[in-house]
Amino acid sequence: MIVTMNDQIPGREIAETLGIARGNIVRARFVGRDFVAGLRNLVGGEVSEYTRLLEETRDEAFGRMVTDAEKMGADAIVTFRFSTSTIMEGTSEILAYGTAVKLK
Rank of each mutant, 00 (worst) to 15 (best):
G11Q: 10
I94T: 10
A15P: 02
R52L: 11
I94S: 06
V26M: 04
D34N: 10
E60L: 15
R64N: 13
T79C: 06
V78L: 03
R12S: 10
R29E: 08
V31K: 14
T84F: 10
V43T: 11
T4A: 10
R40Q: 10
M65F: 03
R27N: 07
R27H: 08
I94A: 08
R27W: 02
A76K: 02
G44V: 02
T84P: 02
T67P: 01
I87W: 06
N6C: 00
T57P: 04
R29T: 14
V3E: 09
G11C: 09
T91N: 11
E55Q: 13
E56C: 06
F80G: 03
T86Y: 08
V36E: 09
E89F: 12
R12I: 00
E46K: 14
V101M: 02
I25W: 06
R33I: 11
S85Y: 07
R81I: 07
R64I: 03
M72L: 10
I14L: 05
G73N: 07
E70P: 01
E60N: 10
T79I: 04
S48K: 14
R33G: 11
L42Q: 12
R40H: 05
L42Y: 03
E89W: 08
G63F: 04
T67E: 15
G98K: 05
V26E: 06
A15V: 05
A28P: 00
I87K: 15
M65A: 07
R64Q: 14
E16W: 03
V101I: 10
I2P: 04
E56V: 13
A74H: 00
G32P: 01
T91D: 09
V26F: 01
V47L: 11
T79E: 12
F62T: 03
R12F: 09
R64P: 02
T99D: 08
M65K: 05
A21I: 03
K102Y: 06
S83A: 15
L53I: 05
M5T: 14
T57R: 08
R64L: 14
G23I: 04
K104L: 13
A74W: 01
F82E: 11
E16Y: 07
V101Q: 06
R58Q: 11
G73W: 01
T51L: 07
G73F: 04
L54G: 04
N41S: 15
M5Y: 08
A61H: 03
A100P: 02
I77F: 07
G45H: 01
L54D: 05
L53M: 15
R27V: 15
D75P: 03
V101P: 02
I14V: 15
M65G: 02
K102D: 04
E49F: 00
E16F: 07
G44E: 01
M5P: 03
P10W: 05
